[in-house]
């Protein structure tokens, strides 16, 4: 009886040893292939522009709300340039309208995706603010363009479980669409509502400051088309750049400073009601 037991025990040990060995080699194989896979992927996807040096720049963005006329050409340009879904629920940039009517304490707020504005334009693909305040006594009104703030301390990057979203050395928050698992934790974490889910690619999406353009020395599409220079973009490392001068010459603000995200979109001319 004892001998039999020992025999079965010995066989079991051999079996267990084989099991452990198989598991270890399997794990090693998976590990090696992933490391190799990551390396080749990183090499292929380094930059949209081959000879661009991301250590030489620090990008920043300015918004002069006193200049914005709410024409929404920026929204249109962004959608076309970046292939953003042409509906009323996905925007890399949008414009808010704040209107104080006589006798009212709080501003009335809407954006181009408001159903009334869509009804006025006739299509979700055409952006327009309607004339709903015609004939009303408006005491104060202004437009506020919004977008990803490319924060120095971005909540979205903090919560991403895979590291698919990251901050580049030149200060832009990007998403690796090949690596994003589409959990949308970052969508929840962004205090500014700048992120959305790209249902075609099934990954998270947002403004990149047109990284494919700025690394070639061009301006982001929204800045390029703004007819009144309400959107300012440039290199914070260059003291003579548009953005450095904008920050130096104005008393600038950022959105929701209490969040501690340290946004890199600097605003002029916004109001206590701006969210």
């Amino acid at each position: 009886m004892k001998e039999k037991m020992n025999k079965s025990e010995a066989a079991r040990r051999v079996f267990l040893r084989k099991l452990v060995r198989a598991a270890l080699s399997g794990a090693a194989l998976v590990g090696a292939s992933t490391l190799l896979g990551r390396k080749t992927m990183a090499a292929a996807k380094s930059f949209p522009t081959p000879d661009y040096d991301w250590t030489k720049h620090q990008w920043g963005y300015g918004i002069d709300a006193t200049r914005c006329i709410g024409c929404l050409r920026c929204v249109e340009a962004c959608k076309i340039e970046n292939g953003v879904s042409l509906d009323a629920h996905h925007f890399r940039t949008w414009v808010e309208r704040y209107v104080y009517l006589e006798g009212e304490e709080h501003a009335r707020v809407d954006s181009q995706s408001d159903p009334q504005n869509i009804a006025a334009s006739g299509s979700e693909k055409v952006y327009r603010f309607d004339n709903r305040y015609e004939g009303k006594k408006v005491t104060k009104a202004f437009f506020v363009p919004k977008m990803c703030n490319h924060c120095e301390n971005p909540s979205c990057v903090q919560v991403c479980p895979t590291g698919a979203t990251y901050r580049t050395k030149d200060g832009v928050v990007l998403i690796d669409h090949e690596y994003c698992i589409g959990c949308q934790y970052c969508v929840q974490a962004c205090p500014y509502g700048a992120r959305f889910f790209n249902y075609e690619q099934r990954v998270t999406d947002k403004c990149t400051w047109c990284y494919h353009r700025i690394t070639k020395g061009l301006k982001p599409a929204c800045v390029e088309v703004c007819p009144v220079n309400a959107r300012i973009f440039g290199d914070l490392n260059d003291p003579d750049s548009d953005i450095s001068r904008f920050i130096r010459d104005n008393r600038v603000q950022v959105l929701k400073p209490s969040m501690g995200n340290h946004p890199n979109c600097y605003y002029v001319g916004i109001d206590k009601e701006v969210v």
């Binding site: 629920h89 707020v109 929840q188 509502g193 700048a194 889910f197």
Partner: peptide, 10 residues
């Protein structure tokens, strides 16, 4: 008023 991107629940 809600942010335009918020109209789809994550």
């Amino acid at each position: 008023y809600v942010y335009p991107n918020e109209t789809v629940i994550p």
